[in-house]
Design a protein around this nucleic acid. Structure first.
Length: 201
DNA sequence: CTACCGATTGACT
DNA sequence: GTCAATCGGTAGA
C-alpha cells in the first residue's frame, strides 16, 4: 500500500471531485507516539460560491483564512469544544474545502483507541470530531501542508473493497442551511460511516 | 467586556 | 426520537 502523499494537483480541483475521490484514500497522522490512520469512508464538500453553509461564505476571518490559501493544506477549526479537519481545494483566494467525516481505523488502532478512551472500533473515528481526537488533530495543524508526507497527509490506496463499493450521496450532516445541496459522499453500507442508518444505505 | 452560536457528541426517553 | 454540555470565534455594546 502506497504512503506517498497526494499531489497539489489532486487537491487543486473542484471540491466535489476531491470529496468523491478521497473516498478509499488513506489518512495518516504521525506523532512521537507512532503512526495512526485509516481509510476515508465519508466526506463533505464546501463550495466557494452559492454555499451559505461554507465558513468562507461571509468573507475571510482569522479562523477561516486557511481556506483562502493554496490547495492541499489543512483547514482545522474548533466547534462545540472539539475539532473538525478539512482539506483545502482549488487555487488561492478560491475558498473551498472538503470535510473528512469518518475513517475506518487501520494503522495504529491501539493508539487511536488510547486517545479516544476505550471504545469499540466503530466508534473510534465515525464522525469529524471523533476522527480528530483519535488522530490528535487540533488547530496546531491548521494550515499544515498535506503534500509534505509528514505529520499529517493523505495517500492514494486502492483496494478491491473500495473499487467495488457503491458511493452514496446525501445532504450534509449538521449544517443549518443549504440542505438542498447533496454534497456529502460516503461508501454505501460501510459500518464506519457516521450519522443515522438511513443516511448510510 | 458580554452574548450568542455552531460542519458535534453522547446520554437519555 | 430528544436534549444539553461544551468553548473558541465573532459581533455588538
Amino acid at each position: 500500500m502506497s504512503r506517498k502523499p497526494l499531489s497539489r494537483e489532486f487537491y487543486n480541483r473542484d471540491p466535489v471531485l476531491v470529496a468523491r475521490e478521497l473516498l478509499g484514500c488513506l489518512l495518516l497522522r504521525a506523532t512521537a507516539d507512532g503512526i495512526g490512520g485509516g481509510r476515508i469512508v465519508e466526506t463533505e464538500a464546501y463550495l466557494s460560491s452559492g454555499d451559505p453553509a461554507c465558513h468562507a461564505s461571509r468573507g475571510q476571518t482569522r479562523k477561516n483564512r486557511s481556506m483562502f490559501g493554496r490547495a492541499g493544506h489543512a483547514y482545522v477549526y474548533p466547534i462545540h469544544a472539539r475539532y473538525c479537519f478539512n482539506v483545502v481545494t482549488e487555487p488561492e483566494d478560491v475558498p473551498s474545502a472538503v470535510l473528512v467525516r469518518a475513517i475506518e481505523p487501520q494503522q495504529g488502532v491501539a493508539l487511536l483507541r488510547q486517545r479516544r478512551g476505550c471504545h469499540g472500533v466503530h466508534e473510534l473515528a465515525s464522525g469529524p470530531a471523533k476522527l480528530c481526537e483519535a488522530l490528535a488533530i487540533d488547530t496546531e495543524l491548521d494550515g499544515w501542508d498535506l503534500t509534505l508526507g509528514r505529520r499529517l497527509w493523505i495517500a492514494a490506496a486502492s483496494d478491491a473493497r473500495t473499487d467495488q463499493a457503491v458511493v452514496g450521496r446525501s445532504a450534509r450532516i449538521g449544517v443549518t442551511s443549504a440542505h438542498d445541496l447533496p454534497l456529502r459522499f460516503y461508501l454505501k453500507d460501510d459500518p464506519f460511516v457516521s450519522g443515522p442508518k438511513r443516511l448510510r444505505a
